[in-house]
Design a protein around this nucleic acid. Structure first.
Lengths: 141, 141
DNA sequence: ATGATACTTGACTATTTTAGTCGGGTTTAT
DNA sequence: ATAAACCCGACTAAAATAGTCAAGTATCAT
């Protein structure tokens, strides 16, 4: 299982943004340069973040993005959700009446994968953007 | 992040095998039919499991595979490791002196991804094949 | 012996996902 | 006016995934 760049970049970019937040909007160009992420790709990512109301945009010169909520209230879950970084341990649709692999019953390991999914999501639920900024700050002392 | 079929199938197949283990070798054909997994694909998977000494093969008619260790001693970690299902949260090579994304320092969120990796691997370390067989048995009562 | 069953191996391929790129906008401060 | 920035949709190359396929070899039952 691997984390995709989109999810990773979204978090990196938001941590970067959060560190400067409250003063001026931060432009994607700056984030792109600091974090080494393609500007075009960042635009895609921030478009999603804006639609999910995690950030607000400021257009025009001197524009950029600012957080739309307190960093403490933004959790990894929210970020990943916004950019469609989902945790998927099974193929089978949840809604489907059928079991896994086209069988009529749930596969032998269905519960296991559900547990795993919960385990990972718990981690994402616990971490807020604020936590990340603070951890990062402490590391630098 | 998604779990690949290879990893999922490996675990499903081993749980299936473990339930019949101790009596006779279990053929991949049977596992294929019961679990709805392509026989050819199972052969690839079991080839890896055998090389990592998780199963033993018995050739010829009435042949198949048997566990090479006690189910209690086989952990998800071992299984995933055998079939190259790795947990990868960062792109950057561990060995590389350089940081992430070609920068000279570690990325702002490097610690986070390391933590996540550990969190997931802990889950895999705790679960043994025996646990899975038992859980499955209890569900059926 | 011989046929059937089952493991063994390696190469090949189609599909899907990922990770972007590209080209055109629109808005706004200076 | 113009440059800096956001905005949007379509396109594409590369990688990973999920298999398939072909040609074996070993062993058992008869």
């Amino acid at each position: 299982m691997r984390l995709t760049s989109k999810g990773r970049y979204a978090v990196m970019a938001l941590v970067d943004l959060a560190r400067f937040d409250g003063i001026n909007p931060v432009s994607l160009r700056d984030i792109s340069l600091r974090q080494g992420i393609s500007l075009d790709y960042l635009e895609q990512i921030f478009s999603k973040l804006r639609k999910k109301e995690i950030v607000q945009s400021v257009r025009g010169t001197q524009g950029g993005y600012i957080l739309n909520k307190k960093a403490k209230e933004i959790r990894l879950t929210n970020i990943f959700d916004a950019v469609d970084e989902k945790v998927k341990t099974v193929q089978c649709k949840k809604e489907s009446k059928k079991g896994c692999n086209g069988k009529s019953t749930k596969c032998l390991t269905h519960n296991l994968w559900d547990e795993l999914e919960t385990h990972i999501n718990n981690f994402f639920d616990k971490k807020s953007l604020d936590d990340l900024v603070k951890e990062n700050f402490e590391r630098r002392l």
